[in-house]
Amino acid sequence: MAGRTGAWALEARAIVAITRKDLRILTRYPLEVFNQIGQPIYQFVIPSLLLGATFAVGGRAVGLEETAGTGDVAGFLILGMLVAYLVGAAFWGIGYSFKREMDQATLEPAWLTPVARETLVLGRGLSALVLSAIGIVLMLAIAVALFGVRLSPAIVLAVPAFLLAALAVLGVAFLISSAVLLIKEPVFWVDASDALFAAASGVMFPITVLPGFLKLVSFALPTTYAIDLLRVTGLGARPLLDPVLQYAALAMLAAILLPLGRAVFAWADRRLREQGTVGQH
């Protein structure tokens, strides 16, 4: 038992080392830090908030109020973006980072160490989360200071939903990482699936406006429920489904996606060993 605890401690230390390494490298490219944290805000959040303000009547988005039960377009977008940061961390911060390491020829030496393969995913996850957290804080500050966003304290009730969604998205990160390791040109697939994931989760709009088939996709995504529960508790929006059902769906998706992602990642590792492609770049 003590051995197992020691092994966990060593893996945890490796996770921290990966995060420290990623952040150290990033700080040596100051503009890249600004780009990674600021780009979603200045390219996406601010223009969207301004667009929302353009269509607001007396500060309320009447159409949104009709479809989603809240007229606070800024709060609606900010809470969607909060989960979009999580999705971006999974797709780019974890999944696509394996491609960058392959291109740099630094993945193979990591693959030659006794560290658990999953630790390499979790380490990247932690560094991506740190960056996302900075981005989220900055985004919230801008939203509150410039766009008057006010969230209800009841939003803390949605924290369990956010955490369950994070577990499920970690499963997705394992799936994306597997694909990135095996596909030669993954950038298109990562970009397209990230965009589809964010759109179908209702980051920018209520999923009720999606065509029928995409609505089905939405209900299969954990992030749909996390965003909705955040909006219900933080803005008083109308829930898509009974919140209890949404929690049940979130728990079920986390219970499916995380083991599934881990199993697929183990399979991808075996495929890499069959093909010998971990060192190819």
């Binding site: 060593l10 030496p109 560290v115």
Partner: peptide
């Protein structure tokens, strides 16, 4: 973009 020592610190953790 890391120093030699930083490279080795990283891999030391991966080598447990």
């Amino acid at each position: 973009k890391l120093t030699a020592r930083e490279n080795l610190e990283y891999f030391a953790a991966l080598y447990h």
